[in-house]
Design a protein around this nucleic acid. Structure first.
Lengths: 196, 196
DNA sequence: CGAATGGCTGACTGACCAGTCAATCAGTAT
DNA sequence: ATACTGATTGACTGGTCAGTCAGCCATTCG
């Protein structure tokens, strides 16, 4: 790993912390430089613009997510297990680095006017991957056919993001046990429903 | 209705359109004035700041939502019907004025660093109201007790917001039939689950 | 009619900040 | 030692924009 790549990473990590703390629109590039302990101009040596930094943060993580979905889908595991793996990836992403997920959820995933717009395609890819898992399970007769597969995927992802949002707004440290508990609860809720 | 109140409303409606189109952070106060066909300074005659306009937009609609949840809860209707009424209110809010809901979802509900932070309390009130409906139904034995009530409320609200987000990002006119269809699908998904 | 009230106007200001760039420094090759 | 390459620095610029304010105009009232 070159020293150059290290510096770039250093700035990227600092940016994540700053974006998470102050928000993309309200932070200054100088805040990122200060947080990284680096001169202002160096940020522009490694990134062409402030926006590009956010794009990079988002894409790095989201591509991992798409890979996870593809893997789950390709596996021979039962549908519930496939969904569990995806929920697990997202929850563990938050566990390992809450700031990255906070930035993605707050600044990209719902930003219909700014970044979200430029990444819709990629965001949709995730829903579609999950929908394919559901559709496959419906064809196999293990999930019931009444619910549209894409709609079910939205329910799944919407629930996961809602849980993250809750954690983000709480501002508190989440107890370790909570993470695994929630993974199970997500799958249970989506597959089992409430009854009635 | 005084002419004064009309002007205030005029500015408020224009602001909603501008926020929805350009986003709060990227629009200028002059854009709002232009959209309303009003002098720049008049905006500050009716509102102390740009932020206050967004706060007002959010609170007006959110208070209606809290009232709807309280009514549903107070009614003697079966739990599924109570949930249907809440989903119905939100979906119809979007049907009648997509821009208002777009602004709320995009600029407030997930804005953990800016507006969301100042309104967490009120946002949470909605989840708690929905959770009470679920808990009541669980006590009555019509919903199963395995799922935590607040978690179920998050699943419900998360799904609804995810559907709105989908509509917002699509940028297209939603066919009338879709609205009622989705209301039913939301309740069906939350109560019935996917099976397996 | 004259004056007072209050909605209304838009040019202006002061602060802020993304992005630039000329200069310096560190490391490596010759 | 000299030259070259690329990382690093931070002062500076150009443009933007929220909010102010001094005054205008329309209506009403004595």
């Amino acid at each position: 790993m070159s020293a150059t790549a290290d510096k770039r990473r250093l700035i990227l990590n600092a940016a994540v912390r700053v974006f998470a703390r102050q928000g993309f629109h309200t932070c200054r590039v100088s805040d990122i430089a200060d947080e990284a302990g680096v001169a202002y101009g160096l940020v522009y040596h490694y990134f062409p613009s402030k926006e590009t930094i956010l794009d990079t943060v988002f894409l790095e993580r989201w591509n991992l997510m798409l890979a996870t979905i593809a893997e789950a889908q390709a596996s021979e595991a039962p549908p519930r297990e496939q969904l569990r793996r995806i929920a697990s990836f997202i929850v563990d992403s938050y566990r390992r680095d809450p700031d990255v997920m906070k930035v993605i959820v707050v600044e990209v995933t719902r930003a219909a006017n700014t970044f979200g717009r430029t990444h819709v395609q990629r965001i949709m890819q995730a829903y579609e991957g999950i929908a394919q898992i559901v559709a496959q399970a419906q064809r196999a007769g293990v999930f019931r056919r009444e619910v549209d597969a894409l709609f079910a995927a939205q329910a799944f992802y919407g629930l996961v993001e809602q849980v993250l949002t809750q954690w983000i707004f709480s501002g508190e440290e989440i107890p370790e046990a909570e993470f695994d508990h929630v993974k199970a609860e997500i799958v249970e809720m989506i597959c089992g429903g409430l009854g009635g």
